[in-house]
């Protein structure tokens, strides 16, 4: 069973722990990233995302626990695993006095498994893929932050990869660049690669990811498909109506617990009052509408509200601006 399970996951950790002195930066993390998924790795600053990524790539050693990447043990089988893994870790880093193409050449030469005969073509293709073809001979110190970020992505794409580990891939990119990265991630996933994206841009994650894991204070507090994560929180109906009392009566009759709009429920344009209520499993939303109309309640708007990833995220990791320790 373990063999089949290992093959099913591109990244799998058991009890992964990293301590710096007494402080556990990563604490008993059981990650399971299915192959072919786009896995969003979420968490506030300082929650242990990057430390986890460093351990996955064999840059740092784990204090305890097991890591399997592409079905192989890390860091013992590092040399077999890493050529299949493209990485962007904690921002791009390049030699400022070399050109973009020369930097990629150097890093590709460092990979002893990358064939030298195709190096020029692969470097050119990777640069073209991230839209840096025109700037390949410019020195990196003349690059903007977004261009460096693109060059970092190009480095991750130098060889065909089974797994891409992208730490904050859209950092510093303009809206066009962000869109392109989204397209890039989708096309990589369509080619069968697994993409492991760490980010705190939730809308980004919501748009590209199939699976999500949430870190908080070194622990993995939630993990699953995007829908699973969302659906564990309740869905609500939101009824905009000039007859809130009548609506309240109807919804109560359906076994729901309606609440009249408070100040904060009103949106711009909502001149009317309204009610919200949690949706129970026994009642379908369309039945609610039918009941309202049958009872003669004038309905201006009806909406099914599931909590956003952001709400869910704050629920899991806590409010506040302080770095959790």
């Amino acid at each position: 069973m373990t063999a089949a399970l290992a093959a099913a996951f591109a990244v799998e950790t058991r009890g992964l722990t990293k301590r710096f002195g007494a402080h556990a930066a990563v604490d008993d993390v059981h990650l399971a990233v299915p192959r072919g998924s786009v896995f969003g790795f979420l968490g506030p600053n300082g929650s242990g995302k990057t430390t986890t990524i460093r351990m996955l790539l064999g840059l740092a050693s784990a204090t305890a626990g097991e890591i399997r990447v592409l079905g192989r043990d890390m860091p013992h089988e590092l040399n077999t695993v890493l050529p299949q893994v493209g990485a962007l870790v904690e921002g791009p880093a390049f030699y400022p006095f070399l050109s973009g193409a020369a930097n990629l050449h150097r890093l590709d030469t460092a990979n002893r498994y990358a064939p030298g005969s195709t190096r020029n073509t692969r470097v050119r293709d990777a640069l073209a893929r991230v839209g840096l073809g025109h700037a390949e001979h410019k020195k990196v110190h003349a690059y903007s932050l977004g261009m460096k970020q693109r060059l970092g992505l190009a480095n991750a794409l130098l060889s065909p990869r089974e797994l891409l580990v992208l730490d904050e891939p859209t950092n510093g990119l303009d809206p066009q660049g962000t869109r392109e990265v989204r397209h890039l991630v989708r096309s990589l996933a369509a080619d069968g690669a697994t993409v492991f994206v760490s980010s705190h841009l939730l809308s980004e994650i919501e748009q590209i990811c199939t699976h999500v894991g949430v870190m908080s204070a070194g622990r993995l507090v939630s993990q699953g498909t995007l829908d699973e994560l969302r659906s564990t929180s309740d869905r609500r109906v939101r009824v905009v109506t000039p007859d809130p009392e009548a609506a309240t009566r109807v919804l109560s009759g359906l076994g729901m617990q309606p609440v009249a709009f408070s100040e904060s429920d009103l949106r711009p344009g909502d001149v009317e009052s309204g009610v919200t209520a949690g949706l129970t499993d026994s009642v379908a939303p369309e039945e609610v509408v039918a009941a309202l109309v049958t009872a003669g309640v004038r309905v201006r708007g009806f909406e099914l509200v599931s909590s956003t990833l952001e709400e869910r995220f704050v629920e899991l990791t806590g409010e506040g601006f302080d770095v959790v320790q």
Binding site: G58, F94, N111
Partner: peptide
């Protein structure tokens, strides 16, 4: 200090080889 060490090792360059 350039930050390139992590990319060289992730390439993978191999620590002994580097």
């Amino acid at each position: 200090s350039h930050g390139t060490l992590r990319y060289l090792l992730a390439a993978p360059a191999g620590r002994v080889r580097l």
